[in-house]
């Protein structure tokens, strides 16, 4: 570092700001990816089928795909309403 940098080092470098912001947004967009395109539609269909039998909330069905080595696992969680 040259001695002039001493006077300049106060400001936060814009490149490190860019890197931080990119790391956050890229990580978020990657988790939404890989996800098959049909998942939201599948989730909606399953919700409708369950509703033929039980009254459940809109967010009662949670669905996600996890990758374990070569195989993919479709995980389905249905929250039933508490019985009184």
């Amino acid at each position: 570092m040259g001695f002039l940098d001493y006077f300049r080092s106060e400001k936060k470098r814009s490149a490190s700001l860019a890197k931080e912001r990119l790391q956050v947004i890229v990580a978020r967009e990657r988790t939404n990816r890989g996800g098959a395109d049909y998942l939201p539609a599948l989730q909606q269909d399953i919700l409708e089928v369950i509703r033929r039998y039980i009254a459940v909330d809109d967010d009662a069905v949670r669905i996600q795909v996890e990758r374990e080595g070569d195989c993919e696992v479709l995980e389905l969680n249905v929250t039933l309403p508490e019985t009184e």
């Binding site: 470098r13 490149a15 490190s16 860019a18 990119l22």
Partner: peptide
């Protein structure tokens, strides 16, 4: 500009992607 911290470095880009 990379030297001045004004531009993403090649290492930064490789790390992110």
């Amino acid at each position: 500009r990379v030297g001045k911290g004004e531009m993403l470095s090649m290492e930064d880009i490789c790390e992110i992607l």
